[in-house]
Amino acid sequence: MNTELAGKEYPPTEPYLVGREKIREFAGAVQASNPVHFNVDAATAAGYDDLVAPPTFTIVVQQRGLDQLLADDSAGIELHRVVHGDQRFNIVRPILAGDELTVKFRVATVRPLGGNAMVSTEADILDAAGVLVATSYATLVVGGDE
């Protein structure tokens, strides 16, 4: 893949509107049981404006940023050669139903490793007011050409 990609920033994505049913579906899939993910009354009783997304729901929004990289012909990355190496979320506040989130995605570093490339990416998740909600850091191991 193209190692000159380090430092590349992509334009902010179109807003992602977080829906209640999506939160319920995701929380069920990760085997969450806290009622603030499922029950609006429980969420408001706990002091939230609406349903609360599980911490790793951030990946659903971050994916919109990653899609920009995968669609970037100058990057030369094929999805079936990509393995998720590590993942970190730094969370400023939980994502809530009703949030409209945009992603500012960038490639931090590209390091060759054997025939592969270790691609470190960073994604800022911003709310409708432009305030930071979370930052997601992912390292992708991109396999070389066969």
Binding site: A32, Q87, N90
Partner: peptide, 24 residues
Amino acid sequence: GAAVQPVIDHFGDPSRIVDYRVRF
């Protein structure tokens, strides 16, 4: 996503999680 659930249940509130990282 599933591995952090016992921690959330122990502390009772998902917003107590301020940072979470793993290596696969």
